[in-house]
Write a protein that binds this DNA or RNA. Structure first.
Lengths: 204, 204
DNA sequence: TGTACATCAGTGAACGCGCGTTCACTGATGTAC
DNA sequence: TGTACATCAGTGAACGCGCGTTCACTGATGTAC
């Protein structure tokens, strides 16, 4: 028993140090575009030697994926909160909250997009990322079920999620606008989409 | 006069050689993820020394942007064709065509997304990319005007374009599915979105 | 209590690589007189 | 027609850099007896 407890303690400490590294990674991702972030950057930010990183993560890709997964978990918690508080099923409010959250947490959004585009991910990593994505879909499912749509809810969640991500990607580099103006435009367009998703099918 | 003509000829030849390089770039982009494509790759594919590239493009970024712009032009021509042939304003058909086109021309889609995400583009490049984007919006504007929506048409085009791009990004790495299954899923979700865009606002 | 050993976090240096870009040069073609 | 010169596409070699990863080592801590 004692042996187990000691081993547990050590494992916890290891976990804590992993978290310190991920914290550092997060700060670096906040400041640099994804493709420019290096192991050396993260090590410097964490105050350790870059060789030490390899005590905690087998390679760069694993570290990046772990860092993202932590953020992805936060996204679905955040969505769960909003959707719980919005019993009346206001798609508009959820879409605005989602867009605003991902603008504020831009590093996570950039990471998510990079992983979506990356053709070189191992299937194990892809599966992990997809599990995180499914947790987000689940939240949107709850939202749409609240609205008592007759149509199946999962495709709606897929479409809604994809559409909002599209907004966040498409209007990132709007030339000659302030950050605030871009944010404003994104929420406007997200609102257009939300309104479309608030109506049930009506055969024209 | 003669002098001018000769100069013109030379300019045309230079343009033709630039095009050969862009052709080569296109082939490389078809095979490698964006971030892995190097000047050396493109030169090899074009059958010239990598130093020669710099006779035709001032730097890597300019070459990449030019390569993309050619493809972006093709996209809006393609859209124009479809929308002209679909006088009855079938959003669904246009959305399916768009998605299918970009799956088939995946390199362009990947380039577009990379440019959207890239934080290090010069404002001159961003302006060029945005001009291309506006030409696509213009086509969607025509589509939505055909449908005689009362609401302003440009925000719809923004939202529709963004939503479809979102679909193309979000479901790229669906684990354990064949290319065909992924394509199928994308068109299904695009259809969900199209249906939403086919209905006018209806206050619930 | 003391000693020999095992474990393991942490490290600086090095490896090997590929990259964007520049440079000095070659050789072909056209121009001036 | 011949000669000196200018232009410029094309090139191989080199520069300088940053990267992911590995290696051999140090030193602290815990364990066994």
């Amino acid at each position: 028993m004692k042996k187990n407890t000691f081993a547990d303690l050590k494992a916890n400490e290891k976990k804590a140090r992993q978290d310190v590294i991920i914290d550092a990674a997060e700060r670096v991702f906040a400041v640099k575009p994804f493709s420019k972030v290096s192991i050396r950057d993260i090590a410097r930010e964490a105050g350790i030697s870059h060789a030490s990183i390899y005590r905690y993560f087998p390679d760069q890709q694993s570290l990046f994926v772990e860092a993202f997964l932590r953020g992805a978990g936060e996204i679905s918690l955040f969505l769960a909160d909003i959707i719980r508080d919005n019993q009346q099923g206001a798609v508009e409010k959820v879409s605005e909250a989602y867009v605003t959250y991902l603008i504020k947490n831009d590093p996570y959004f950039r990471m998510m997009t990079q992983f979506m585009l990356d053709g070189a991910l191992s299937s194990k990593m892809i599966e992990k990322l997809n599990a995180a994505e499914r947790r987000i879909f689940d939240q949107f499912d709850i939202l749409f079920r609240q609205m008592r749509f007759k149509e199946p809810v999962r495709p709606l969640s897929h479409a809604f999620f994809a559409a909002l991500n599209g907004v966040l990607i498409t209007f990132r580099n709007y030339p000659g606008r302030t950050k605030e103006a871009v944010h404003q435009h994104m929420t406007n367009i997200a609102k257009v989409i939300a309104k479309k998703f608030q109506t049930k099918y009506s055969i024209l």
